[in-house]
Simulated assay, not measured.
Amino acid sequence: MSDAYILVLYYSRHGATAQMARQIARGVEQGGMTARLRTVPGVSSECAAVAPEIPDEGALYASLDDLRQCAGLALGSPTRFGNMAAPLKYFLDGTSGLWLTGELVGKPAALFTSTASLHGGQESTLLSMMLPLLHHGMLISGLPYSEPALLHTQGGGTPYGASHLAGADGKRPLDEHEISLCRALGKRLAHIAQRLEPSRG
């Protein structure tokens, strides 16, 4: 397991989802595994990637090898009309080669999202993000109600995955419950990956 890692793959336009990704990565490491943070470039109206090969700041862009070689996946996106953002969907649409070879079958996955408003489609986004992962044969993990923050949060947090109320300007910082749930999700994913990895080897 020394080389095994959890891929924390996300798209973030204003930084809120990136904040979540860093907290999930911290949870993965608290769970005893390495976290690999990766993002995806934006897309144009014609759906072609529009970005330099290496971003000016933040996480590197994900490759299919990052996905192929991971022991588990945490996938995050801001909400766009109750669904994931186009850049992340565009990346996932390019993973048919991994689907054909079954590279992701049996690997655990978890999801996270951020919204501008409290009822801005957090749960529908998390549920819709599960669909391509289920097609890949991944094993979806949510957040159990044994996590106390899930019962007390007044911002984000769902049994379907971690979520965050970023506010209309996208600048609201993660509150203590949202941080707790992000870390819990990462830790849970790491523990599941460690249990599954011997059976996959």
Rank of each mutant, 00 (worst) to 15 (best):
M1D: 13
A4H: 13
I6S: 03
V8W: 10
R13I: 05
R13S: 13
H14A: 07
T17I: 06
A18Y: 06
Q19C: 08
A21N: 09
R22F: 03
A25F: 07
V28G: 05
E29L: 10
G31I: 09
A35C: 12
R36E: 11
L37F: 07
V40C: 02
A48S: 13
A49S: 08
A51F: 11
E53L: 15
E57Y: 13
L64S: 12
L64W: 10
L67H: 12
Q69T: 12
L73Q: 04
A74K: 10
L75E: 03
S77N: 06
M84N: 03
M84T: 00
A85I: 01
P87M: 03
K89L: 02
S96F: 09
S96Q: 09
T101D: 05
G102M: 10
L104A: 11
L104V: 06
K107Y: 04
S114H: 06
T115M: 07
L118S: 14
H119G: 13
G120D: 00
G120H: 03
G121F: 01
G121K: 03
L127N: 08
L127G: 10
M129H: 01
M129N: 04
P132K: 01
L134D: 09
L139M: 14
G142D: 08
G142C: 03
P144S: 15
A149L: 09
L151P: 01
L151W: 15
L151K: 15
H152L: 14
T153N: 14
Q154W: 04
G156W: 07
Y160L: 03
G161A: 14
H164R: 06
H164T: 10
L165P: 01
L165F: 12
H177I: 07
G186S: 08
H191A: 12
G201S: 13
